[in-house]
């Protein structure tokens, strides 16, 4: 057998910079899209991504109507947008962290992804992006359901496009950053951690004003909510879609009003708070992930499976 001698060209060991990074990111997103969306089983996919948020919105709206005697249309919008937006968190936060566990324990591919030249965090961000996109489908369907069935149409003329785009962009960054932070945590766990991401997501659901304003929570707990970018993201998106609605942050009994003396944050303050908390969370997640990756490599956790 005649063979070519490998040239051992050291140029091959060098990266191709951003192009390579971007290719790795897109590939991970494609894998995520194909693997998580479960296109092969549309019924299952529909149930999880679409029916679940709609059902949740419906249940909450019915409960709200019973409690208020149907007298709280503003709260209806509040609840439905909260549930719809939560689909993004479900995907980009819990889903991203779950993909670490799934790749490691179920598909056993984490180590092969890890030893490829694509940066591990970049691959995870790609997976997170796919999950966010899938979550976005759930969010859109839920909002459409709200508009068509629950009688809460979005008035295009009144939508604050700038606020919407800015809130969404920052919010998605924050969600993925939080997801990366959660991934850093589950990377350290050996087993029985499948429920962690959902549990943390559940706790945040209550803290960020998804279905009820922060004002109903005790002061110190509200403080946690105010530090989480998800709170400001939801506030921003709600305000952009339904101007003049109920504020999650301010109002009587709220820590925000107590501290600032204002009824609700004005839009620039809201965006500033969203930007600040997003930066904070992103920085914290980046540090956590670095530390976690190093520790995982030190302890041999990258290819850890519950079996061994």
């Amino acid at each position: 057998m005649t063979g070519l001698t490998p040239s051992f060209d050291l140029g091959r060991t060098e990266g191709r910079g951003l192009r390579e990074t971007f290719r790795g990111y897109l590939t991970a997103a494609r894998i995520g899209w194909a693997v998580e969306a479960n296109w092969a089983d549309p019924i299952l996919f529909f149930t999880y991504s679409v029916a679940k948020p709609i059902a949740a919105a419906l249940i909450l709206v019915v409960m709200l109507d019973i409690v208020s005697g149907g007298q709280a249309p503003a709260y209806r919008r509040y609840v439905v947008t909260g549930v719809a937006l939560w689909s993004f968190v479900q995907g980009g936060f819990a889903g991203l962290a779950m993909s670490v566990l799934e790749d490691r324990e179920r598909y056993r591919m984490l180590k092969y992804v890890y030893v490829s030249p694509t940066t591990f965090a970049v691959a995870l961000l790609g997976r997170g992006t796919a999950r966010v996109a899938i979550g976005g489908m759930g969010a859109l369907t839920t909002l459409a359901f709200g508009a068509l069935v629950l009688g809460m149409p979005v008035d295009p003329a009144r939508v604050d496009v700038l606020l919407f785009v800015a809130s969404m962009a920052l919010g998605l960054v924050a969600i993925i950053a939080l997801g990366l932070g959660m991934a850093a945590v589950v990377l350290q766990t050996r087993q029985d951690s499948w429920s962690y991401p959902e549990a943390v997501a559940g706790a945040m659901f209550l803290l960020v004003g998804a279905v009820f304003p922060l004002a109903v929570l005790p002061g110190p707990v509200q403080a946690i909510g105010l530090v989480l970018p998800l709170t400001w993201w939801m506030e921003g998106v709600r305000r952009s879609l339904f101007p003049g609605g109920v504020s999650a942050v301010g109002g009587p009994g709220s820590l925000f009003t107590e501290l600032t003396g204002r009824e609700a944050p004005d839009t620039p303050a809201l965006l500033l708070a969203l930007l600040g908390t997003t930066l904070l969370v992103t920085l914290a997640a980046a540090v956590a992930f670095r530390v976690s990756e190093h520790r995982a490599k030190d302890r041999g956790l990258i290819d850890q499976t519950s079996g061994s």
């Binding site: 790795g24 590939t27 494609r30 194909a34 092969a40 591919m109 092969y112 030249p117």
Partner: peptide, 27 residues
């Protein structure tokens, strides 16, 4: 690296698809 004694792979992907995706990870 290739390890034995494990059932690795993204079950939902086609063989050709999964391999192609990894080729992309390798630039």
């Amino acid at each position: 690296i290739v390890s034995g004694g494990e059932q690795s792979g993204y079950g939902l992907l086609l063989v050709r698809e999964q391999l192609w995706m990894f080729s992309q990870f390798y630039g």
